[in-house]
């Protein structure tokens, strides 16, 4: 199939990376704790890729990405628990379904709010994120097992290396195909100049909605993988700080570069989790003091984003 034929080099490289990782995992070269971090990094990469499409490529600033991640996570947690799914194969349709749910919510919320731009879009997505957070905090009032502010416990652990890795590969290929097609071109046109984009015949409202829906879908899948990696969810995992995490990754990754986002995710998760291992707990609190300073410095130093020029995948 052309779909795979066009990306064979990429596939060969990914499979090699997979084999190396698998060997590391199998022979316990790295501790289970680090293995988990590796999986988490891949999940973050997948989710950030979604935000990259929304913000990096299409220029729609969203402060609510974690909400869609959370929707995917809770949907998956609920489904896998209720249906007592524990194998990878039956989990795949759940994953897809979670992606669709987040995508649908993104679509519905996107219809009204994507008319807004820049700061107003930021406030609207932030508002949506807060709504979701409020809902999750009170979710036990709707269904006891969602756990509300106590958190969702007892989620089956299903997520494994194969699953996250091949979902990421799959998503990278699809995203790349989209980006290097008329749709990706339209997204970038919209980012540069929305008005000019409509004038050349691009249905900007539809295209923005499409990018947003797709990005939210990826967040939903990421969330589902996340839920079934840690077996415990708490509403605070999906607050604005998490949205900012994704945002920072997209910015560091160069806003509009697929591989940039992937590298940035790995570096970022490695950095944060690395700090957790290296630094004592008290100093660890300094993290969110230092990160904003870095962020401000980055913005002042490179207001157009790091490595802001485009690169091919």
């Amino acid at each position: 199939m052309r779909f795979f034929r066009e990306s064979w080099i990429f596939l060969i490289v990914s499979v090699s990376i997979y084999i190396i990782l698998k060997a590391f995992f199998a022979f316990n070269v790295i501790s289970p704790y680090i293995q988990q971090i590796c999986l988490y990094a891949v999940i973050v990469a997948l989710t950030s890729l979604g935000l990259n499409v929304i913000y990096g490529y299409t220029g729609q600033f969203s402060l609510g990405h974690a909400a869609f991640y959370g929707i995917g996570a809770y949907t998956s947690a609920y489904l896998t628990k209720v249906l007592s799914i524990d194998g990878v194969i039956p989990f795949i349709p759940v994953l897809v379904f979670c992606g669709l749910v987040s995508g649908l919510v993104g679509y519905l919320i996107g219809i009204p709010i994507l008319r807004l731009r820049d700061d107003f879009l930021a406030i609207a997505t932030l508002g949506f994120g807060t709504l979701v957070r409020v809902f999750l905090d009170n979710s036990d009032k709707f269904a006891e097992s969602l756990g509300g502010s106590r958190g969702f416990v007892g989620i089956p652990r299903i997520t494994n290396l194969e699953l996250v890795f091949f979902f990421l590969i799959f998503v990278i290929i699809i995203t790349r195909n989209l980006i290097h097609s008329r749709y990706g071109l339209f997204w970038r046109c919209i980012k540069d100049d929305e008005l000019a984009a409509t004038s050349v015949g691009i249905n900007t409202a539809n295209m923005k909605l499409m990018a947003f829906t797709y990005g939210c879908m990826l967040a939903g899948i990421g969330g589902a993988l996340y839920a079934n990696l840690y077996s415990f969810l708490h509403p605070s995992n999906f607050d604005i700080l998490r949205s900012i995490d994704f945002l920072i990754i997209v910015i560091i990754g160069g806003m509009g570069s697929i591989m940039g986002t992937i590298y940035a995710s790995i570096i970022w998760v490695g950095f944060i989790e690395g700090l957790r291992i290296v630094l004592p707990a008290q100093v660890l609190d300094m993290r969110w003091v230092v990160i904003p300073i870095l962020l401000i410095a980055l913005m002042i130093w490179r207001p157009y984003g790091l490595m802001s020029k485009r690169r091919k995948v």
Partner: peptide
């Protein structure tokens, strides 16, 4: 109002491709 960060070719392609050319499925499946 050009698309400043896009190439010359892409600027012209934007309007050519905005017509009905191929759909989402074609794009994803190449």
């Amino acid at each position: 109002r050009l698309f400043g960060s896009l190439t010359v070719l892409e600027n012209v392609l934007s309007s050519l491709l905005s017509k009905r050319t191929y759909n989402l499925f074609s794009a994803v499946m190449r």
